[in-house]
Amino acid sequence: MDSTLINEIKALVISSLNLEDTTVEDIDENAPLFGEGLGLDSIDALELGLALKKTYGITLTAESAEAREVFRSVKTLADYVAAHRN
């Protein structure tokens, strides 16, 4: 996996969710985005989904089972972006 894309996704998470005290290095690419990991919630998922659409032209519906898998971690997001970006 391209570490540049992983770092881009981490930076996108930080900027789109205003995680001011978090750096790219603070985010483990394999840690869960929701619950135990970064502790994101459904509103964060919507914000992140909008940022992904704006940045990479990717549309995911929050309710789909695919979206749950894609939003599992930074790595799963990066894998999805790499495979689907316009």
Rank of each mutant, 00 (worst) to 15 (best):
T4A: 13
L48S: 05
A62C: 02
P32Q: 11
I9Y: 02
E36A: 14
E20G: 10
R85A: 12
V81A: 02
T76C: 00
L38H: 06
N7I: 11
E66L: 12
S42D: 08
R72M: 03
E63Y: 00
L52H: 07
L52Q: 07
A62I: 11
D2A: 09
K54Y: 09
V81E: 01
I9E: 04
V24D: 03
G37S: 06
H84E: 00
P32W: 04
A65S: 12
T76A: 04
E8S: 11
L52R: 01
M1E: 12
E20I: 09
T22G: 03
A45Y: 06
E25Q: 15
T61N: 10
G57V: 06
I27M: 09
D41R: 05
A65E: 11
E63C: 01
T4L: 13
D44Q: 06
L40I: 06
A67T: 15
L33G: 04
T23R: 06
D2C: 10
A78I: 06
V13L: 10
R72V: 02
E25A: 15
E8C: 03
S42A: 09
F71Y: 14
E47Q: 15
D2T: 14
N7K: 13
T76Q: 01
A78V: 05
V81R: 00
E47H: 14
D26L: 10
A78H: 02
A65N: 10
A82K: 14
E29D: 11
L40H: 01
P32S: 13
S73M: 08
A83F: 05
E66N: 08
I58S: 05
T76G: 00
R68M: 12
L19G: 03
G49K: 10
I6R: 09
V70T: 11
D41H: 01
L12N: 01
K54G: 01
T59P: 00
A83R: 02
E29N: 12
N7P: 06
T61V: 09
I6C: 07
T4V: 15
